[in-house]
Amino acid sequence: MNRTEACGDMLALASLHPSGALRPEDARRVEGHVEVCPECRDALALMERVHQARPAPPMGLRDEIVAALVAESEVRRTPLARRGWSALLAAAAVLALALSTGLLFQAADPFTGGWDDLASGDPFHEPADDWYVAGVPLLDGVSEETLLALMTDFE
């Protein structure tokens, strides 16, 4: 069988075969096609070779990440009062910085959406480098009332 117009679409589909990302019925379509089409068969073989050469994360990284997540979730579950004054002071310092730069209340700046933007809408817009302010994402999810209450506590 000669290369047909359908081969282009078939190759796009076939390129999801090595990683196992295809639905079973699509995988079968690809397998049926390469049986009768030598060109696509060669292309699939090359794509399999590339897939086999994929790098793996370093040994031990997985355990390190899980340990870090467990530690992080413990911090999140510990009531603020038990975390001591240092955490409160750090939060207040970050808040003061954010307020002084007007960052918290600039509705139109490129990064006030913060992690909410990442979670939805257009997560890939490019914030200018200026908008990376250390610690600001820590305040995401904290309501304005809570922030103001925090400030009041420190007045």
Binding site: A119, G121, D140, G141
Partner: peptide, 10 residues
């Protein structure tokens, strides 16, 4: 993990 609550699943 910190942003999980904000992940709206779209």
């Amino acid at each position: 993990l910190r942003a999980l609550d904000g992940f709206r699943g779209d």
